[in-house]
C-alpha cells in the first residue's frame, strides 16, 4: 500500500492507495503520528478513493486512529470509500462510529 500525506490549512489528508491490510500497520501508524504532529491541524481526512481492499485489521487501525483523534479533539472523516471498501464499512456498520463522506 502507498501512503501520501498533505496538509491543506487546518485539514490533514492521508491518502491511501492499494490494499489496506495488516502489512501496512507500521507505515500507516507512522503517517498518522506524523500528521498529528503538524501545527494547527483541526481535522484528519483518510482518503480511501484508491483503496481496493480493506481487511479486518485495517478496520482495527481505523478504530485506533479514531481513539487518537478523539483524545486529541480532532475531527476525523473517512472519505470516498468505493466498491469492496464501501461494502466492508457497511457490513461493519462503521457509519455508527465514523463520519463517512
Amino acid at each position: 500500500m502507498q501512503i501520501a500525506t498533505k496538509a491543506e490549512g487546518q485539514r490533514a489528508i492521508i491518502r491511501l492507495t492499494g490494499r489496506f491490510e495488516f502489512s501496512a500497520h507500521k507505515e500507516f501508524r507512522d503517517a498518522v503520528e506524523r500528521v498529528m504532529q503538524l501545527e494547527g491541524i483541526a481535522d484528519l481526512v483518510i482518503d480511501l478513493m484508491d483503496v481496493e481492499y480493506v481487511d479486518s485489521s485495517a478496520l482495527g487501525m481505523l478504530l485506533m486512529v479514531r481513539e487518537r483523534t478523539n483524545s486529541a479533539k480532532l475531527g476525523l472523516t473517512l472519505a470516498n470509500p468505493r466498491g469492496m471498501v464501501r461494502q466492508a464499512l457497511d457490513i461493519a456498520h462503521f457509519e455508527k462510529l465514523f463520519v463517512i463522506s
Binding site: L63, D90, I91, A92, H93, F94, K96, L97
Partner: peptide, 10 residues
C-alpha cells in the same frame, strides 16, 4: 439478513 449492528466489542 444483513449485518444489523457493529461487531462485538464496539
Amino acid at each position: 439478513i444483513d449485518s444489523m449492528q457493529l461487531a462485538l466489542g464496539l
